[in-house]
Design a protein around this nucleic acid. Structure first.
Length: 580
RNA sequence: GCGCCAGUAGCUCAAUCGGAUAGAGCAACGGCCUUCUAAGCCGUGGGUUGGGGGUUCGAUUCCCUCCUGGCGUACCA
């Protein structure tokens, strides 16, 4: 088993977000202004080349503590051994050789054992704000994806029951991940795989048939393993209301077949509606039946066959998956001659690659993680490069009310329904809460908290910041101080002003990292930090005052902040209220 | 048994490829509204990063081991 699929880190061949190779090819002028770390990296590299004639890997990081400046590098520490010199001596020589052609660096200092800290000038930060205003809704976007086709498949719940809360979590996460990839230049798409074929769908038909007949006082046995939830009864009732008794007289087989079709269409319709109400718009809903109708699974079998990875045993057809790290071989065609779900799923993923996607991500529920090795084995066997197929497990969700775990609903078939939760707390809170945590850790969803309209609720905290920003711009208008982007902003030098601009300037990095590391929670965390930085600025600096020039400069800062919060909320498809 | 994920402040979570004194929010306590939204701000206390060992200038981060919790280990889907 290659360990990459179990790693929470991106695989090695994955675009390395710390290697800005692609970006360096872009025009430097504009990018440099928004990527000061690259500028510093280049400066440090040139200085090292000049002073010591070495070209080590240089990492530019942001110090945790404000006192250490805006950027730092530990390169001198790492070079100590190579150059056989004290790190501080190396650092001193390095600093002396920094040219800083663009005059962005305000201060350089050598601290501790040999850290070199860089503080950028206010002038530089003002230019960042200019850049944000110019970019507007596009601020944060990038082109590093180079239009590569990527696809994320998520939710893909069986159409045999209502969607549960893990689906709600997966829907929010998957939707935002695709948006993130699109923002940094990938041609990314959302896809929902509808399992509308096979045993379980026949079971759905038979279950509905039994309930339907009961409505006419006919006794028809519920199939073994049939679906027990009360929603099946509701479904039967809906069918009776729409079609009357027209299926009663049919043979059992015919009735099951017809009711199966109706029930399936109804359930899929409900799923589509739930997703739409939740602001998730799939580029494609892919039907499993399509694969089967076109015999794509047999084609996939043939591909494996050609690679000599298939054999017959005990009347079944097996895939030699253990040769690719799976713990045992898996059945593709059962001894009854039925293709397994696994085989069909392999062909589905082959189809995705055939459609031109270079990279696939599946979001699966926690009960499917045992399935990862065999699927990865299949993709590897079929020659897809390592890392081109990835799976992330969306961990379980505990719904809490008054501190207690909410019990499952019998009506929905012993699950907690997605629609119920979304209706109760609203789309904004639901999406925010589901995105707030890393996807591989279990999530406690506090329903009471999500509904609270107080500072305890992070959604309101962020939305309030947006409403407040909007209100300031409105108020300025009433005072006849218009927002004018051409005004001078050189007087924006106060501590809170610069701190706010710095925070705004982080957004593109946050977005890029969230996208490439598949960690959407970075966006919500950032939003909370940004809101906090803004509230702090607001508290200490009056925007609209008698000083007209200063007011106008601050209005530009307010507008820049509004732009970034709006962009991030739009990305999450959470509303940005103008008034609260 | 084997495998996957997780274990960080009372609670929920962060922590930028291994970097500086591990940070936020909530809860607790104390301040701040004549001024653009107090759904806000400022401050105080709170930690053996589950335990132990290793790798090195440096470990929440990498390796080994143990403990705890969740999940998975089908000719089901």
């Amino acid at each position: 088993m290659s360990s990459f699929i179990f790693s929470s880190q991106p695989s090695a061949n994955f675009t390395d977000w710390n290697d800005y190779g692609v970006m360096q090819k872009l025009k430097r002028s504009r990018m440099n202004r928004l990527k000061p770390d690259i500028y510093i990296k280049d400066e440090v590299a040139a200085a090292l080349k000049k002073a010591f004639d070495v070209e080590p890997d240089i990492v530019i990081e942001r110090p945790r503590q404000e006192a250490f400046g805006d950027f730092a590098t530990t390169v001198a520490l790492g070079l100590a051994k190579v150059l056989k010199m004290a790190p501080r001596k190396i650092a001193e020589a390095l600093v002396e050789n920094i040219v800083d052609a663009d005059q962005l660096i305000e201060k350089m200092s050598i601290d501790g054992p040999g850290y070199i800290n860089f503080t950028l000038s206010n002038h530089y930060w003002q230019s960042v704000l200019r850049g944000i205003i110019e970019a507007g809704p596009a601020f944060g976007e990038d082109t590093i994806g180079q239009n590569e086709k990527r696809q994320i498949e998520f939710v893909s719940a069986n159409p045999t029951g209502p969607l549960n809360v893990v689906s709600a979590r997966a829907a929010a996460v998957g939707d935002v991940l695709v948006s993130l990839l699109q923002k940094i230049g990938f041609a990314a798409e959302r896809e929902f795989y509808i399992n509308d074929a096979g045993r379980q769908v026949r079971l759905l038909g038979a279950s509905v048939s039994a309930r339907y007949m009961a409505l006419f006082d006919r006794n028809e046995a519920m199939p073994e393993d049939g679906y027990q939830g009360d929603y099946i009864i509701e479904l039967a009732q809906e069918i009776k209301d729409a079609h009357g008794d027209q299926f009663v007289a049919l043979s059992h087989e015919q009735r099951v077949e017809q009711l199966k079709g109706i029930a399936l269409a109804t359930m899929i319709g409900k799923q589509k509606k739930a997703m739409q109400d939740y602001h998730v718009n799939y580029e494609r809903w892919f039907h499993e039946s399509e694969l089967r109708d076109q015999n794509m699974h047999m084609e996939a079998l043939e591909r494996l066959h050609k690679k000599d990875l298939v054999y017959e045993k005990d009347g079944a057809t097996w895939f030699n998956s253990s040769a690719f790290g799976d713990e045992k071989d898996r059945v593709l065609i059962t001894s009854d001659g039925e293709p397994t779900y696994f085989l069909v799923d392999i062909s589905y993923h082959e189809n995705k690659f055939d459609r031109g996607f270079k990279w696939l991500l599946d979001l699966w529920g926690p009960d499917h993680h045992g399935y990862i090795p065999r699927m990865s084995a299949a993709m590897q066997a079929l020659g897809h490069p390592e890392g081109s197929f990835q799976v992330k497990i969306i961990q379980q969700v505990n719904m809490l009310r008054a501190g207690e775990v909410v019990k499952m609903s019998k009506r929905a078939g012993n699950i907690i329904e997605m629609a119920e939760v979304v209706n109760e707390v609203g789309v904004d809170a639901a999406r925010f809460f589901f995105i707030m945590r890393r996807l591989d850790s279990p999530l406690d969803f506090d329903i009471d908290l999500a509904k609270k309209q107080t500072d305890e609720n992070p959604v309101y905290y962020v939305q309030y910041a947006h409403a407040r920003l909007y209100n300031i711009l409105e108020f300025a208008r009433t005072q006849n101080i218009a927002l004018d982007h051409s005004q001078d902003i050189a007087m924006l030098t106060a501590k809170e002003e610069i701190a706010l601009i710095k925070k705004l300037g982080e957004y593109p990095d946050v977005l890029q990292k969230a996208a490439l590391l598949l960690e959407p929670h970075r966006i919500t965390t950032y939003l909370m930090e940004l809101a906090s930085t803004f509230h702090s600025f607001y508290q200490n600096n009056r925007v609209v005052s008698d000083d007209k020039a200063l007011s106008q400069a601050r209005l530009i800062l307010v507008d820049g902040t509004r732009v970034v919060i709006k962009n991030a909320l739009d990305l999450l498809k959470i509303s940005a209220p103008e008034r609260m």
